[in-house]
Amino acid sequence: MMFEAPIQRLIDELARLPGIGRKSAQRLAFHILHVEEEDARRLAESILSMRSEVRLCDRCFNVTDSEECSICRDLRRDPSTMCVVERPQDIVVVEKTQEFRGRYHVLGGSISPIEGIGPDQLRMRELVARIEDEQVSEVIVATNPTVEGDTTALYLARLLKPLGVRVTRLASGLPVGGDLDYADELTLGRALVGRREM
């Protein structure tokens, strides 16, 4: 079913967003139609200003509003360890742990010929340059535990080890604080395979 042109146009745009189907797009559009005009304006302006103000960090390719991101500017961070992630939003997740005090490097994805992404499309050359410039001694590979993420991790290990740097990979295992019987079989299976000596 088609709505009046201005409404339909917004529904179509919203439905192009990831995770938004036709029904959600309709609900969002009608919500926006009924809120105060000021609220709708703020939403539109924040989308535009995000696009014009946000850029990528010159050093690590995190999102930032200046030349270097706040993590790269922070002199208390340890430059000798570097965590390599696929996307900027992965940094936020690692930061929340409060366990990592080094710096980051955002690859921009993972090796996936189906999507036309090879090592040349990822920021591998920049990573190698940084490891030499910044005297990094350990690289923690935090790519996703998928076929593509695992393959990218392996590629990185082979690329970086000859540089004399220690390369580690995030462990995969059980969610903490939950009962064993709540873990899904796949996670538990991986945790069994990757079990540790005590």
């Binding site: 010929p113 090592p119 040349d120 593509e148």
Partner: peptide
């Protein structure tokens, strides 16, 4: 599927390290 795509798209030019 990934390896086959790489071979199909790149053929002999496919990156050996990949």
């Amino acid at each position: 599927r990934q390896r086959n795509t790489l071979l199909r798209k790149e053929g002999r030019r496919a990156d050996r390290a990949t």
